[in-house]
């Protein structure tokens, strides 16, 4: 068996996912953030973007960055089934990104949300976009969610009033280490969608073009004095 053939056998079966349509959000600062699906060939830029955060323990950036690094590499190397990545870009510069996985027609598995530009609820918008894709586009009935940090717990578990299914372990378990699993059901999503999820579609050509080529941030509020 040729090496290439063996490698192909290692790949998971893939379900062709409905694409996530780009949208644009005017952040409180007035900056316009294009939210769109990342392409596999952009993995290098995404990895380069999150790599510096692997060494930042504050607010659990280290564990989120390192796990997201693995998820992106897994996506690039075809080692994760039905993964999708959504990115937020301001003038092309990556402001944040989210990773997630379509498990079945009924279930989504939220992986990670990483915010680079802080103070403008970029992470909140990208998380909402991820849920929008799972429940509105892919038609899943529920999404399993965990949090690495208290910030995540506040933003997702409390603000979305997620269902705590941790008592149903091991029947209900998130893929990320068997930690307590919370669930966004369709009913919960419909209750919060209008107050959590926004964005204008279609995105005009000029704005879309600004996010065509993703750019790694040149500064990180999490890393004072950072130079690329």
């Amino acid at each position: 068996m040729a090496i290439d053939e063996m490698e192909r056998k290692l790949r998971p079966p893939e379900i062709a996912l409905k694409p996530y349509l780009p949208k644009i959000i005017t952040l409180a600062s007035g900056e316009k953030m294009v939210v769109r699906e990342a392409r596999r060939e952009e993995t290098g830029t995404l990895l380069g973007t999150i790599y510096p955060l692997i060494g930042v323990p504050t607010d659990f950036y280290d564990i989120v960055a390192v796990r997201m690094y693995a998820e992106l590499l897994g996506w690039y190397r075809y080692r994760v089934a039905n993964e999708f990545v959504i990115v937020g870009a301001i003038d092309g510069v990556i402001a944040g990104l989210v990773t997630s996985r379509h498990v079945s027609s009924k279930l989504g598995m939220s992986l990670h949300t990483l915010t680079i530009k802080r103070g403008l609820r970029v992470g909140a918008q990208l998380f909402a976009a991820k849920m929008e894709h799972h429940l509105d586009d892919l038609g899943e009935e529920e999404v399993h969610i965990v949090a690495e940090s208290p910030n995540g717990f506040k933003r997702w578990m409390i603000e979305y009033q997620l269902e705590d299914r941790s008592s149903q372990f091991p029947d209900v378990r998130h893929e990320l280490g068997g930690v307590p699993t919370y669930v966004l059901t369709r009913k919960l999503w419909e209750a919060v969608r209008d107050i959590k999820c926004t964005g204008t579609r279609p995105v005009v050509e000029q704005d879309l073009k600004s996010a065509e080529k993703l750019i790694m941030p040149s500064e990180y509020p999490q890393i004072p004095g950072f130079k690329r």
Partner: peptide
């Protein structure tokens, strides 16, 4: 900006 937090289409969520 006033557009982002009051006048714009996403203001109610932002």
């Amino acid at each position: 900006t006033i557009e982002a937090i009051a006048d714009g289409p996403e203001a109610a969520v932002v």
